[in-house]
Amino acid sequence: METDSIEEIGIDEHGRLFIRPLNHHFPMIWRSGTEVHWDAKQLFLHSPKPREWSYLDWYKHIISVVKEGDGGNCELCPIGSTLWTNVPTELQRQILNSLEVLS
């Protein structure tokens, strides 16, 4: 399995959670039918605007789809220099704490 660092985690102007990998691109991830999409202009994976699921749920889902699904067999990992854009401090904490559970 390949790994890639997460360059940026954010919430865009449409209210979607996005994850920008440092090196990998996932243009065909939509084929997984998981509501995870690739924005070819912004070069990030994104969820729809949350309805029933929280942003944390979507983060976990995107990471899981990329790692285990038809998304690409790649483990995405935040690093010390990961940018957090429009992500509340509490959500940042929850995402970082979830890494132990996801491992």
Rank of each mutant, 00 (worst) to 15 (best):
V36M: 04
E8R: 11
E35T: 07
L76R: 06
K41P: 06
V65G: 02
I29R: 01
I19M: 03
S32L: 05
N97K: 09
D70M: 12
G80N: 14
Q92V: 15
E52V: 07
E13T: 07
R20W: 01
R16K: 14
W38T: 00
Q92G: 06
E68V: 04
S81T: 15
D39S: 08
L83P: 01
S5L: 02
L45F: 05
D57E: 07
R16A: 00
E52S: 13
W53F: 09
D39R: 05
N73E: 15
L45N: 03
F44T: 07
Q92M: 13
L99T: 06
T82K: 05
E8H: 03
G33F: 00
S64E: 13
E7F: 14
I62S: 05
D70Q: 11
S98H: 03
D39A: 04
L76P: 07
I63K: 10
E35Q: 14
S5H: 01
F18G: 01
V101D: 14
V66Y: 11
M28V: 03
M1I: 11
R20V: 04
G72H: 08
H46L: 13
G10P: 02
E75K: 13
N23P: 04
P50W: 00
R20F: 00
S81N: 14
I95L: 02
I6K: 05
S47G: 06
L45V: 04
P88V: 08
G10D: 01
P21A: 09
N73Y: 14
Y59W: 11
Y59P: 06
R31I: 06
F18A: 01
V66I: 15
S32E: 14
L83K: 15
H24N: 11
G33T: 02
P88H: 02
H25Q: 14
P48D: 08
I62T: 03
V101Y: 08
H46K: 12
W30F: 14
G33W: 00
L17F: 00
I9V: 10
K49N: 07
G72R: 02
D12V: 11
G71S: 13
L56M: 09
Q94R: 10
D57N: 13
I79T: 15
V101A: 12
T3P: 03
D12T: 07
M1P: 09
L102G: 01
F44W: 15
L102A: 06
P88D: 10
N73A: 15
S47W: 03
P27Q: 11
